[in-house]
Amino acid sequence: MSSKQTENTARRRARVRRAIKAVANGRARLSVHRTGKQIYAQVIDDTKGVTLASASSLDKDIRADIKSGANVEAATAIGKLIAERAVKAGVKDVVFDRGSYMYHGRVKALAEAAREGGLNF
């Protein structure tokens, strides 16, 4: 990536994070990271700086069920898994942090599956 692309990505990520902190009101943050091959999700308590729950397409629980970590099916499975783990950790209300990614495709699929799994955002 060129330095201009990196700078724009960092600026977009900071803008999203700033907006999230403004509306969080003490809720945990559901952070999404995607690469060309995998997708990751974490529920983070920013007041304590602790990860409460995490899931990724590399987890052994889910790896057998998905063909690739880079498709909408994998994102849907990760969304359901992160919701299940977050509810088990006692978190129901979160704010969704899409990072620098558009709310489209895999990111949207993960968010919708997490909502179906019991998370409110």
Results as ranks from 00 to 15, higher is better:
residue 100 S to K: 13
residue 62 I to F: 04
residue 70 A to K: 05
residue 100 S to Q: 09
residue 18 R to D: 10
residue 58 L to E: 03
residue 104 H to N: 07
residue 27 R to N: 14
residue 112 E to H: 00
residue 16 V to W: 01
residue 24 A to Y: 03
residue 101 Y to M: 14
residue 1 M to N: 04
residue 115 R to C: 00
residue 16 V to N: 10
residue 31 S to R: 12
residue 120 N to H: 10
residue 101 Y to N: 15
residue 111 A to F: 15
residue 103 Y to V: 14
residue 119 L to H: 10
residue 65 D to T: 06
residue 76 T to E: 11
residue 108 K to W: 02
residue 61 D to P: 00
residue 112 E to F: 00
residue 27 R to T: 12
residue 98 R to W: 01
residue 57 S to L: 04
residue 35 T to I: 05
residue 15 R to W: 00
residue 3 S to I: 13
residue 13 R to S: 08
residue 104 H to Q: 14
residue 66 I to E: 03
residue 40 Y to D: 01
residue 82 I to T: 05
residue 27 R to H: 13
residue 99 G to L: 05
residue 32 V to R: 03
residue 117 G to D: 05
residue 100 S to T: 02
residue 78 I to M: 07
residue 32 V to S: 06
residue 41 A to H: 04
residue 32 V to C: 03
residue 117 G to A: 09
residue 66 I to L: 10
residue 75 A to W: 02
residue 16 V to T: 12
residue 91 V to G: 04
residue 35 T to M: 02
residue 42 Q to M: 09
residue 25 N to R: 13
residue 24 A to N: 14
residue 26 G to Y: 12
residue 52 L to T: 12
residue 62 I to Y: 05
residue 67 K to P: 06
residue 92 K to W: 09
residue 61 D to Q: 05
residue 5 Q to D: 05
residue 90 G to P: 13
residue 104 H to L: 03
residue 50 V to T: 15
residue 95 V to R: 11
residue 28 A to T: 15
